[in-house]
Amino acid sequence: MATIKEVAKEAGVSVATVSRVLNKSGYVSKESAASVKKAIEKLNYQPNSVARSLYHKTSNMIGLIIPDITNPFFPELARAVEDVAMIYGYTVVLCNSDQDPDKEKKYIDLFKQKYVDGIIITAHGSNSELYIDSKIPIVALDRISDSSLPTVVSNNYDGARNATKLLLQKGAKNLAHIRGPQGITPADDRYQGFIDEMKEQHFDYIIEESAFELKAAEKLAENFFNTHAQVDGIFCSSDAIAVGFLKVALKRGIKIPQDVQIIGFDGVAFGEMIYPELTTVAQPIYDMGALATRLLIKIINGKETEQLKYEIPTKMIERGTTK
């Protein structure tokens, strides 16, 4: 592999001149620039990207921190971020925090050391001071870490109200909401949407809480069906939770949707791969990831965003788990 010294020797110029051509900084005559470019092509010289990032304090890399790679929602989100980033010439570095604040901090510190140009984060929110103090451009995606950050979310509240309305319209009279973890903005908003709709309709309801994980939902469902046999409609805060409840219900011989109707939230692909197919509140997952990436690149380029919070509507998709 050719070195910068060999390029300089081939072109008949100094190493400093080659460096100025590569970094597009300082004056270089047209003749010298042409000689350097010709030498680079002849020797097939590849600039050291690490050295260049140290010099410019930039890397053409975007850091993406997600809380749980096993949740199907986040890989679909990451795909959109990667697709759009590549269009603009950026590489995405994906980090899985496991919802651990210490891991989030380590990743952010690492990104600072590697001079990433910007960060997209779907965090729990407990480390918000890290994002505020960071000089790196940051966009929050799906989960609001701090109200001062540019944020892209779906309309979780309205989506939850629409899911609750649908269960009531389909004849369910004894409803339950399996909410996501408290303190996570989407889970809190979906919970509030359910509560407000039920209160407006003057129905009683049951609330249980689950992590956004299939196994956790299955464990909860085992006890739930033992103690709440009267429930005939369940709105779950994620598709993963909904599938966990569906799986346990079918094992017990509970007919879906005849005995119990179930609605999830997210609209991930596997909702169509199970049977009966899952009725769900579909988030515009790809659009959310794409918008967050474009916003971040805009900020990286020194431009201001028109607003701080971008809220995208959800869509109700009716399938086999409702009547």
Rank of each mutant, 00 (worst) to 15 (best):
V15S: 07
E222K: 04
K57A: 12
Q99Y: 08
V7H: 11
A78L: 06
Y205G: 08
E306R: 15
P137H: 13
N127C: 14
E209A: 01
A78G: 10
Y107K: 04
R79P: 00
L130C: 05
R161D: 03
V92D: 11
I69C: 03
A240C: 07
G267R: 00
N23I: 15
G193W: 03
S32V: 15
K215I: 15
A221C: 00
T58G: 09
Q230S: 09
A176S: 13
S154Y: 05
S97T: 07
Y131P: 07
I241Q: 02
D142Y: 08
A249Y: 01
L175I: 08
V231C: 05
V92T: 15
Q283R: 01
Q201T: 14
K37H: 12
L295H: 09
P101Y: 09
K106Y: 06
I241T: 02
V93A: 12
T185K: 14
D142P: 05
Q192M: 12
S97Y: 03
A39P: 02
E129A: 13
D266H: 00
K135T: 14
Y157S: 05
A16S: 15
V21C: 13
K42A: 11
Y107G: 04
K255G: 04
S147E: 15
R143N: 12
L130K: 05
Y107E: 10
A85G: 11
A2C: 09
Q113T: 12
